[in-house]
Nucleic acid binder design. Structure first.
Lengths: 161, 161
DNA sequence: CGCTCATTGTGATTCAAATCATATTCAATT
DNA sequence: AATTGAATATGATTTGAATCACAATGAGCG
């Protein structure tokens, strides 16, 4: 297991077809690869986005800390719970068939942080469709584009009939 | 949080378009809705598949047990880790674009337990495509169909050139 | 036994996302 | 300042999954 002290690490896997799937984005304070505590064969690749410092926590150390330090154990459970919750939300979001609806939901959930290309990848859509969906949403007035490559939800005061 | 003593419970959500998404399938011995320990607003619907017995574990009880009973805490972390791991696998599998590849991967991961319709729903595909993919795979010799509605991977001895 | 209904299965059609192509902008590098 | 490369953006085409439509099978039930 790893502890990210500083920076950001992405956990990724690639499908046989060659596309990269981001499994988890760990920021400073997060733990990484918790399942490796119990499972032997567990494989993801880790990509450091920028400089970062990571502390390695061996299996024995973690299990020991759990017995001695209650807060540590609770913190771990909490982080894992949060991960589970966000995976569920992600699953729900990815189940949305319509590209436009999915893009809108992604925006609402604050997934559009970096580039549109990265956003599209997170959504599991080609960037072309995402660009198009964004354009349509701007045209519809649901989304605003303060600048090139910057999109954000327009406050929806539900003015419709 | 809940503890499934007996039977099987499915945690589901429905998208705005009305489709049902299974978030988690808890069997006897599993805990359910762990994120509710820390998060206030958390909503899934639970569906009992057949008769089952469920024990309700309040927030205070669980947190108390974690401080007193180390094994309980470790068990909880282990179950959560397993969930995280399976969500990652699911995410990876759902990222496979080709329906046929996805069906094959789903079979390989042992998702085809009940009906083909349920299998299709888990895969996020229409059942028609899944039926067709299965037929094609049988025709290709990658999958065998011992009986109507029963499909299983053929042992792949990799006999190809 | 005959009825109902869900599952299984396949064919035809539609529709939307992927893909291919191409232009533009912009930041980083030389 | 010129060059490279990635992100942005849109248009045209293709492809494949969804959808619609329709049989056939088989289990449960009065």
């Amino acid at each position: 297991m790893f502890f990210v002290e500083q920076g950001e690490v992405r956990l990724v896997r690639h499908t046989e077809a060659g596309q990269l799937v981001t499994m988890f984005r760990a920021r400073s304070g997060d733990t990484l690869a918790e399942p490796s505590l119990f499972s032997d064969h567990y494989h993801c690749d880790a990509i450091a986005d920028g400089d970062c410092t990571v502390r390695v926590l061996g299996k024995a150390i973690v299990l020991g800390a759990m017995t001695k330090d209650t807060d540590f154990a609770i913190g771990l459970v909490q982080r894992l719970s949060a991960q589970v919750q966000s995976y569920r939300r992600k699953q729900e979001l990815l189940a949305i068939r319509s590209a436009q609806d999915r893009v809108l939901a992604g925006l609402a959930d604050g997934w559009m942080t970096g580039t549109v290309v990265a956003f599209a990848s997170d959504l599991g859509l080609s960037h072309e469709v995402v660009f198009r969906a964004l354009s349509d949403l701007v045209r519809d007035g649901q989304v605003e584009r303060p600048a090139r490559g910057v999109y954000r939800l327009k406050r929806t005061d539900q003015a419709a009939s």
